Simulated assay, not measured.
Amino acid sequence: MISPEYQQEYYQALLEKKTEYEGLFYVGVKTTGVFCRPTCPARKPKFENCEFYATAQQALLASYRPCQRCRPLSHPNHVSDVVRLLVEAVEKEPEKRWREEDFRQLSVDESTARRQFKKRFGMTFVEYARARRMGLALKHIRAGQTVIDTQLSAGYESSSGFRDAFARIMGAAPTLLTEDRILKASWIDTALGPMIAIASEEALYLLEFVDRRGLEREVERLRIKTRSAIIPGMTEPIRLIEQQLNEYFAGERTTFTVPLALLGSPFQQQVWEQLMKIPAGETRSYAQIAIALDRPSAFRAVAQANGANPLALVVPCHRVINSNGELGGYGGGLTRKAWLLQNEQAQVTQAQRKEQ
């Protein structure tokens, strides 16, 4: 998603339909589920209902569908008949898995489709269709649909196929890619829903609930930052975190010992270190963490760093609440946050009773 400092500027450009912003951003509208170009003629949404993206693919992976009025997947001054035909076909059946026969039925050359989509949007048609399908699948999960129902509606008969497809959208290894530039992604089932873990052979880079909004963009940032491909697979840190998560949800563990690779700014690193110092069963406010860092006025920056935490549960950002005692935000959802805090407090209380 576009960084916060640009969002007001882009929102103003959306209100004024400024053509010079074409191609700089796309806006997803939460209330309608569509994403638009800056010059869309439709009625403008409220700022709080907007999410801004640098590319159309990011909007697709966030579960938004292209607006039918401004057609954000078409060049503003030239609409390719092939592109228009295929985009409309995908919208008629967004969960469809495309094969050679499907192109023949539309009298479309597959290589032409690949080339035109790559030129216009920086992704092939197959990547577009996959992003649309998987974005829709994640939307179903976020809406409460079970994983098995979601994988079947997305066209996958096995859970392993669905999981592998989800991991494949994160990147495929180039033929000559060296082993030290490959990260592996694995699906982990937990009591609070499936999580995705990404790790090298030495350390864990990311652990998030699969239905977290913006997960795909978070994975993309990791791939770019590490200059690595992310492929399906298992590593020792993933095996270890899976074991420790099972122990955590069984009430047998409150801290994690898996080796971590924390990638962030120096300030973010400092905040995350403070988070890992919060004992299970306790909470801290953003202001308290800012004070602990000798930057008492930086509580908003602390909140942003807290939200950027890439390692859910391991770096316990769920233990940070508002100064007034309210839960505040949580990428995994407030229901999960409340459950995690209550469960940890119950574990600590039970342990204390045993000691007495």
Rank of each mutant, 00 (worst) to 15 (best):
residue 96 K to A: 02
residue 6 Y to W: 12
residue 151 Q to V: 04
residue 140 H to A: 02
residue 171 G to Y: 09
residue 292 A to E: 15
residue 252 E to S: 08
residue 280 A to V: 12
residue 7 Q to W: 00
residue 2 I to R: 11
residue 297 S to T: 09
residue 216 E to H: 00
residue 279 P to H: 14
residue 33 G to N: 10
residue 194 P to R: 02
residue 176 L to C: 05
residue 154 A to N: 06
residue 309 N to V: 09
residue 266 P to S: 13
residue 99 R to V: 12
residue 139 K to E: 04
residue 126 V to M: 13
residue 40 C to S: 12
residue 119 K to S: 03
residue 279 P to S: 13
residue 354 K to I: 14
residue 274 Q to V: 11
residue 282 E to V: 13
residue 95 E to R: 14
residue 160 S to W: 03
residue 255 T to I: 08
residue 86 L to S: 03
residue 292 A to Q: 14
residue 237 P to M: 05
residue 326 E to A: 08
residue 39 T to F: 14
residue 249 F to G: 06
residue 122 G to H: 14
residue 55 T to V: 01
residue 267 F to A: 00
residue 18 K to T: 15
residue 342 Q to S: 15
residue 192 L to N: 02
residue 12 Q to C: 03
residue 190 T to M: 06
residue 241 I to T: 11
residue 137 A to W: 09
residue 164 D to R: 00
residue 104 R to Q: 10
residue 120 R to M: 09
residue 84 R to K: 12
residue 156 Y to G: 07
residue 29 V to L: 00
residue 84 R to C: 11
residue 37 R to Q: 15
residue 267 F to C: 05
residue 316 P to R: 11
residue 19 T to P: 08
residue 137 A to D: 07
residue 330 Y to P: 11
residue 183 L to G: 02
residue 331 G to T: 08
residue 13 A to P: 13
residue 115 R to D: 12
residue 111 S to L: 11
residue 303 A to K: 05
residue 253 R to L: 12
residue 227 R to C: 15
residue 136 L to Q: 13
residue 4 P to Y: 11
residue 253 R to N: 05
residue 354 K to V: 10
